[in-house]
């Protein structure tokens, strides 16, 4: 009976990104081996695993940020809504507009708060006039739970905000291009506990509109925010499943050792 419920849920939530036998090489170093993952819509998927296990590398494959590294090569098949994102006809620029990204360290541009959020809509031509742009900026800042803190100083530099505010600004910036998937690479690792809690709350709210993939070091965080969890170890996807199942009843002994603190 329980299994049946789960299956229906899978059917309801469409698969956004599908990776099959994905491989990543840095020069001759085989960094990611045979990874099969389905990223569901309107779901938070967490990638966990010890340092250097390849979870960030894999995350960066999903919007082709690895293209900026010359020695990096991706094999296998990764699709977004059925279209191979590594197809030579695909323009990474268009892809990244659909799959946004938030980075480990808050990296606001040295521009005003307004210009930071407006940057994506401007380059992609998403708004027709200033009023529309103002609206997008406001709604994104609201979604990022930052509006009330910055509405009086939209034209102050974004670099002047606190760390947690900066990271929420970066999230606002990322959702301003209305992406379908939001990738987050350890978004809280540079933040204090209070800011972390705010961002986590935000992630949970974002789930209603986006598919979110989050890489995290903290198992508690994964347990708190995600519905699906993937455990990576030495470049392999060891286990992928419901978060509750991974944390309470891991199938693989390596997952269990990691969760109980024996490896990592």
């Amino acid at each position: 009976m329980k299994d049946l419920v789960m299956e229906t849920r899978v059917d309801v939530q469409t698969v956004k990104i599908e990776a099959r036998k994905a491989q990543v090489f840095y020069g001759t170093n085989h960094a990611i081996k045979d990874v099969d993952v389905d990223i569901l819509d309107k779901t938070v998927t967490a990638f966990i695993g010890p340092s250097g296990c390849g979870k960030s590398t894999f995350l960066r494959c999903l919007n082709r940020m690895n293209d900026t590294i010359a020695s990096c090569r991706v094999e296998g098949k990764i699709t977004l809504e059925g279209e191979d994102i590594y197809d030579p006809r695909v323009d990474p620029v268009q892809l990244r507009a659909k799959i946004g990204m938030v980075f480990q360290k808050p990296n606001p541009f040295p521009k005003s708060i307004y210009d930071n959020v407006a940057y994506g809509p401007k380059i992609h031509g998403l708004t027709r006039n200033k009023a529309e742009l103002d609206q997008v900026v406001e709604s994104c800042l609201r979604k990022a739970a930052l509006w009330n803190e910055v509405k009086d100083r939209l034209h102050a530099p974004g670099t002047g905000l606190s760390g947690g505010q900066q990271q929420r600004l970066c999230i606002a910036r990322a959702i301003a291009t209305s992406p379908e998937v939001l990738l987050m690479d350890e978004p809280c690792s540079a933040l204090d506990p209070i800011a972390t809690a705010q961002v986590e709350e935000l992630i949970d709210e974002l789930r209603s509109q986006f598919s979110v993939v989050i890489v995290t070091h903290s198992m508690q965080q994964a347990a708190r925010v995600s519905q699906k969890t993937a455990f990576f170890h030495l470049g392999n996807l060891v286990e992928f499943g419901e978060t509750s199942q991974i944390f309470t009843n891991p199938r693989d002994p390596r997952t269990e050792s990691y969760i109980t603190g024996r490896i990592g």
């Binding site: 279209e83 994102i85 006809r89 620029v93 268009q94 507009a97 659909k98 380059i123 992609h124």
Partner: peptide
């Protein structure tokens, strides 16, 4: 900003140019 990834919309074409 919807549509297939496999075809470039005019704006992307202009940006790539």
């Amino acid at each position: 900003m919807s549509g297939s990834l496999l075809t470039q919309d005019p704006r992307t074409k202009a940006r790539n140019a």
